[in-house]
Measured scan of single mutants.
Amino acid sequence: MATGGRRGAAAAPLLVAVAALLLGAAGHLYPGEVCPGMDIRNNLTRLHELENCSVIEGHLQILLMFKTRPEDFRDLSFPKLIMITDYLLLFRVYGLESLKDLFPNLTVIRGSRLFFNYALVIFEMVHLKELGLYNLMNITRGSVRIEKNNELCYLATIDWSRILDSVEDNYIVLNKDDNEECGDICPGTAKGKTNCPATVINGQFVERCWTHSHCQKVCPTICKSHGCTAEGLCCHSECLGNCSQPDDPTKCVACRNFYLDGRCVETCPPPYYHFQDWRCVNFSFCQDLHHKCKNSRRQGCHQYVIHNNKCIPECPSGYTMNSSNLLCTPCLGPCPKVCHLLEGEKTIDSVTSAQELRGCTVINGSLIINIRGGNNLAAELEANLGLIEEISGYLKIRRSYALVSLSFFRKLRLIRGETLEIGNYSFYALDNQNLRQLWDWSKHNLTITQGKLFFHYNPKLCLSEIHKMEEVSGTKGRQERNDIALKTNGDQASCENELLKFSYIRTSFDKI
């Protein structure tokens, strides 16, 4: 039985969820670079991206490699990797027998973001014989899940209580170790020597080791999670996991709180800001991140802002960003909400898709409305799209047979046209069989910064309504002859009103 693990408890099935942008060198404390989270699957090609990484700022997932063999891993080693800020997950990587050479110096898994409450997941690794993470000293947050690894031993010899604050939620089941077939031998045991430290858990006094050649490092209890030197002297209180010299914040392997210019500090002093819960960055760093993602459509890219001495992905609820200094300031009234469309555009074809934009005031991208039916549609669209004030790209209304009016965009005031449909149009209306009105132009103002209007096959939309939009939106004169079809717009509506004058002759039985 794995020490510190839980057996036999019912657990939810383990679901495996399925960018080499360097964020800056980590400095003297770390020998390499800070790398983003990685999802490495199918083959070993991307694994080489770990070569210079000291910190993975995010998670590391290595999974679904069915053609790899043990010899493929023999020359692979990433000794610079010290810390993973989120979680480490391995799933069905064939041929991998140990992690001792792959990650010989991995010391800390912070667990800032977890995989279903777990910071370390080893699942269905069919050839893994031992973990071998002999320098792993601290899992700051989260638990361990090690399950269905039929060859995995050296679990009962690990004292997880020396690595985690609590072992109650560890789930370590259905491994070879369960069948008591392992016969784990710690260093020196074969020669009758006791080389590794022994600890007591559940009444068992057991030597602690990761492999037959690597003991588990056990520091004096007084050192807590700070770690200790090879001689057993406690590291500085700002260290986490390990250090090369005692009581020196510049000799830590990793930091308990924050890293700044080669030393570990309790908090980031001005003019620095907390970033990702582990390091200090200056304003320029946060500003660069903001600008890199301002026009990016890459998933996970955030326009970072500053709030409460932190550089964070977005302002919290009730705050909006001051564009001059990136500071989050309290909103006066309802907060603006910028919604970034991942692929640059979004099609609204149902109430469900409209709900995804609920509360958005600025759309960074283009909207395509293609709704053919739905219950209580006008009210639903207004509830979900009615706060949109600005669209950076274009607005396209296409084959939306259920629409009679666009009044559900009740606050839309600006279409920038930074991206144009077919390279020309910022407003595009095609084949809307029941569209009769755009907006009530006596109450609604709309500016279209650039781009043209396109109207074709809107049989109940009168040309007068379209011409009014040209005047109000500032697009009059931009359109070419064929942009607004004269014969297919309003051709099934009563669009022309003329005053009919009647004269009559009164007659009676005795007068003409």
Score class of each variant (00 low, 15 high):
327 L>K: 15
33 E>H: 11
301 C>L: 12
305 V>D: 02
255 C>M: 01
76 L>K: 09
131 L>P: 01
242 N>D: 11
127 H>K: 02
213 S>E: 09
310 K>D: 13
152 L>V: 14
225 S>L: 09
45 T>H: 06
175 N>I: 14
220 P>M: 03
304 Y>T: 13
89 L>K: 02
199 T>I: 13
117 N>K: 06
294 K>A: 15
32 G>F: 12
271 P>A: 11
249 P>Q: 09
152 L>S: 02
122 I>C: 09
91 F>N: 13
200 V>L: 06
81 L>I: 02
123 F>G: 10
196 C>P: 05
100 K>C: 14
174 L>P: 10
313 P>V: 04
296 S>A: 10
130 E>T: 08
39 D>G: 03
260 L>T: 10
269 P>T: 13
227 G>Y: 13
196 C>W: 01
271 P>T: 13
334 P>K: 15
321 M>R: 06
111 G>E: 00
150 N>V: 06
201 I>L: 11
98 S>G: 08
256 R>G: 04
186 C>Y: 03
218 V>W: 05
274 H>L: 11
126 V>L: 14
29 L>F: 08
189 T>C: 09
243 C>I: 00
276 Q>V: 12
251 K>M: 10
201 I>A: 08
111 G>A: 02
214 H>Y: 03
114 L>W: 05
226 H>L: 12
287 Q>S: 06
236 H>R: 03
160 W>V: 01
198 A>I: 05
173 V>T: 02
29 L>V: 04
71 E>V: 04
115 F>H: 00
103 F>P: 00
86 D>K: 15
270 P>S: 04
157 T>P: 08
119 A>D: 00
302 H>K: 11
64 L>R: 12
171 Y>M: 08
209 C>Q: 02
108 V>R: 06
175 N>R: 06
37 G>N: 14
129 K>Y: 06
250 T>S: 07
128 L>A: 03
155 L>A: 12
332 L>Q: 04
330 P>Y: 11
43 N>I: 04
268 C>L: 01
35 C>S: 00
262 G>V: 02
32 G>M: 05
49 E>S: 14
80 K>R: 10
70 P>R: 07
76 L>I: 01
222 I>P: 09
75 D>T: 07
276 Q>P: 03
186 C>P: 00
332 L>F: 15
194 T>H: 14
204 Q>C: 00
52 N>V: 02
170 N>M: 08
224 K>A: 10
123 F>L: 06
243 C>M: 00
296 S>Y: 06
210 W>G: 12
190 A>M: 03
196 C>V: 12
60 L>N: 00
155 L>S: 10
50 L>H: 01
267 T>I: 01
77 S>Q: 14
89 L>S: 02
277 D>R: 05
102 L>F: 15
256 R>E: 07
203 G>I: 06
57 E>W: 05
197 P>I: 13
197 P>Y: 06
299 Q>Y: 08
216 Q>G: 07
156 A>L: 11
196 C>Y: 02
137 M>W: 11
313 P>A: 04
129 K>A: 10
148 K>D: 06
183 G>W: 05
42 N>K: 04
154 Y>H: 04
31 P>K: 10
72 D>T: 04
48 H>S: 08
130 E>G: 04
202 N>C: 10
136 L>F: 05
277 D>Q: 10
198 A>D: 03
182 C>L: 03
31 P>A: 06
213 S>N: 05
329 T>Q: 15
249 P>V: 03
39 D>L: 06
